[in-house]
Design a protein around this nucleic acid. Structure first.
Lengths: 106, 106
DNA sequence: CGACTACATCACTATATGGTGATATAGTTT
DNA sequence: AAACTATATCACCATATAGTGATGTAGTCG
């Protein structure tokens, strides 16, 4: 059970995959468009898209000889929101702790 | 930026770390108690606790010569809730799709 | 102080995974 | 069908990381 949840988190634990999802949040895109937008190798993008697809996070359909990918589970953005908020709070706390402990010239 | 978020997800992308957090949800625990509860090696538990600590997810304090760990950022449980709900929905959809496509004897 | 306990860290191995060039496959066009 | 385009897959290397035995370190007790 924990294994399943962990796998899900690991799927999101890769910057390039998050950037792919971010691109798709704006709307469906072909593999080629993602390759251009993200400045990454095509096999690499395809591999990551495959992982996201297997995880059920994105959907795809064929159109001509292009594959069009799109978001399938909007949950990911709520997850990212939570993490970002937490990260921000953490950074702020770290900053204030530093200010509190450091002798500041006045 | 995405790198930070990804790192956070990767921290949660490990079953043993999730199980540690799950244990700590019930209340603070020492390293030894976690080792017993999770049936894992002590160095391994300590390493994972260190990772969770560096990530700011757990806090710790010394008491005698025992180290007591506890949850520091309850966000993780909201994250897990979201993932679990999504996972459940996905499993259910997969099941129904299977039932819809398979010829069933009646 | 020495012995003991609880934990952290080190050193190492095994495995998983990301990136990439080469190649296979599906669809289109002529 | 041959040539072309878009994507997927393969084979491989490099790196990251989980697990583990040995060792270091902080605190307690006699």
């Amino acid at each position: 059970m924990m294994e399943l949840v962990a796998r899900r988190f690991r799927t999101l634990g890769e910057p390039l995959r998050l950037r792919i999802l971010q691109q798709l949040e704006a709307g469906e895109k072909t593999v080629g468009e993602l390759v251009d937008a993200l400045d990454a190798g095509q096999p690499n993008i395809s591999k990551h898209l495959g992982i996201l697809y297997d995880a059920g996070l994105v959907g795809r359909r064929r159109e001509g000889n292009a594959m069009i990918y799109g978001i399938n589970d909007p949950m990911v953005f709520r997850l990212c929101d939570l993490v970002c908020r937490s990260e921000t709070k953490r950074s702020k706390a770290a900053f204030e702790a530093l200010n509190g402990r450091t002798k500041v010239k006045r």
